[in-house]
Design a protein around this nucleic acid. Sequence first.
DNA 1: TCATAAACCTTGCATGACAAGGAAATCAGA
DNA 2: TCTGATTTCCTTGTCATGCAAGGTTTATGA
Lengths: 121, 121
Amino acid sequence: MTRKSDEPRDVIAKWEVQLRKGVLEFIILHSLNEREQYGFELISGIAERAAINVPEGTLYPLLLRLQKEELISSRLAEGDGGAPRKYYTLTLQGRELLQAMIPTWSKLTISVDRLLHGAAV
Amino acid sequence: MTRKSDEPRDVIAKWEVQLRKGVLEFIILHSLNEREQYGFELISGIAERAAINVPEGTLYPLLLRLQKEELISSRLAEGDGGAPRKYYTLTLQGRELLQAMIPTWSKLTISVDRLLHGAAV
DNA sequence: TCATAAACCTTGCATGACAAGGAAATCAGA
DNA sequence: TCTGATTTCCTTGTCATGCAAGGTTTATGA
């Protein structure tokens, strides 16, 4: 019995990975704009509030990148019986970028939904 | 006078490229599900109805990929005083995938909007 | 024959998501 | 003291997509 490697579920799962590109940066910046948070806190908060699972292998490289781009900054603090936590907050640049991202996101989703529902411009 | 290469407009433009990943495949499939179309027709139709500009360098490789994955099929027809047109339609697999994509897209945008507006799950 | 327009194609690069594996700090108990 | 569990963070390599730039083919009209 042969088995195709491209079953529908796999195809959708791969597509979802592509769809998330850019989106995760957006929601991380937005979450940090609400309040200072550390890595694990971001992951659990976003999972709880939006049902979006952000893997560690995605989050940490992303946070490092955002810090290198000076969109966020960090400070170390003691952990709760474990390794120290790294708390992140937005820089001024980060807040400005986030403000520009919001209408960009809105425009894209509105455009797509307009196509989906066949409404005119 | 120095000039930073990372001006806000560039940063947003790059981010927008990332955001479109996956989305373009989705809207192309959706457009072709409505009716058979050729490349230029897709570009102009999507630009007009959704204000989304799909460059040729994006569209043609995408169409070739979708055809290789047997999500769309094509037929040649005469052009309007120019090169022949390649008309594309969805295959059964393509229609099935599209039907699975729609709720995936909805869930993602709803989740993000829930975060943005601070509503609870 | 040349220019123009319609339509399509190719190459190479930039970039983000993530699986897998790992490392460091703390604490509890044997 | 050693071991294991828990919390937290990090690194590497792979895969996929979008797209700019440049090119090709077909037909038409001057």
